[in-house]
Write a protein that binds this DNA or RNA. Structure first.
Lengths: 193, 193
DNA sequence: AGCATGTGTTTTACTCGTAAAACAGTATGG
DNA sequence: CCATACTGTTTTACGAGTAAAACACATGCT
């Protein structure tokens, strides 16, 4: 996660797991240990939210770390792959600004990545004829082939990692996350407590 | 999320939950839009894993971004708070190495953070009497008070954010994540596909 | 004891991301 | 038109993290 980047975040395990629910992992995850520590120090606090947020953060950190390996073999960072992927999946040219929004990163970061990817022959740039401030970016054949080569590998890998959950579990998880996410995205910025 | 990092670390890839911009409330989350794009371009691929991994990444990024605000008001980055929190919740002194493991970061990063936090009077250092290589770190009173002041605020904030899911939903989500996480942590490194 | 080896921590060199300023060009209102 | 404000992109200055090397010390072998 960050952590930040690599960020691990405090986590916890309170009552999260319902009784009797199927598998009962021999031992808890790291988050549950952290939550236990907090509860010992501050018994008056409701550590419930840590059980969810801490685990989301930790899962994200582990999954990203694991997925980076295959990517690096192709000589790409995750941010670079995200950029190429955005161009590939939209299927058309994008401006730097659109690319920034699409990949949730700053314009400056996109400028730098595009520069490198262009030098590597994976992306091409073309100026807009009407508005000379804007550029249009597209994948080269090499860029498209690279993405198309990596993607199935990446998906197969993800499938393997997630197979620790059964099909129903994955479906439930995806559903709950979709609900959480759609509501978070809906009111983003609203809760700046 | 870098997250890390100033802010949210870019989330990630394949499953890359990354569409941008606009909130498109009524219809699903941004991840489902991305998945739809990929399926249009590569109908033969099973995009299932993206629905889970992409959402975990995106949720992590949004939650971290949201939680950073309250932290910054206290003049701390998430990484710094993690470090102070580790000292607070364990209740005893930790060496730099232990702190690195506890916060899932590199020793070098811990060295730098401890240096800053010590200068700010939040952390104290003491050398080990037997083994002069090691140091023991502990919170100062100011450091402890800072953590104890922030924590309830942070938890209240998390509770508010998660309230978009009902109690059962939160419990189910925590349970599924706990299962996934404990298995990922169990076999981490095993799947370096 | 003396030296090779191992461990805990810090330093160094470098990458990458960001925020804010700088650029470059477009659109508008008088 | 021409000044002004605005938008899209790039540049600049800097902060934070990492890996690998450097340190500093401890330990074990002979």
């Amino acid at each position: 996660m960050t952590a930040t980047n690599g960020g691990p975040t405090p986590a916890s395990d309170t009552a999260g797991a319902r009784p009797g629910a199927g598998t009962d992992p021999a031992r808890g995850d790291t988050v549950s240990a952290v939550v236990r520590q907090w509860r010992a120090v501050h018994p008056e606090l409701d550590t419930g939210p840590m059980e969810v947020i801490g685990r989301i953060n930790r899962c994200a950190a582990l999954l990203q770390q694991a997925e980076d390996a295959p990517l690096r073999r192709a000589g790409l960072s995750r941010a670079e792959f995200d950029l190429l992927g955005a161009l590939r999946r939209t299927g058309h040219e994008l401006t730097p600004g659109e690319l920034a929004r699409e990949t949730f990163s700053s314009g400056a970061a996109v400028t730098k990545r595009v520069k490198q990817l262009t030098e590597r022959g994976l992306v091409e740039r073309r100026g807009d004829t009407r508005d000379r401030r804007v550029a249009h970016l597209r994948l080269t054949d090499a860029g498209r082939d690279l993405v198309d080569g990596i993607l199935p590998e990446q998906l197969a890998y993800e499938t393997a990692v997630l197979s620790v959950l059964d099909r129903d579990g994955q479906g439930e998880l995806a559903g709950l996350l979709a609900e959480l996410l759609s509501r978070l995205e809906g009111r983003i910025g609203a809760l700046r407590a």
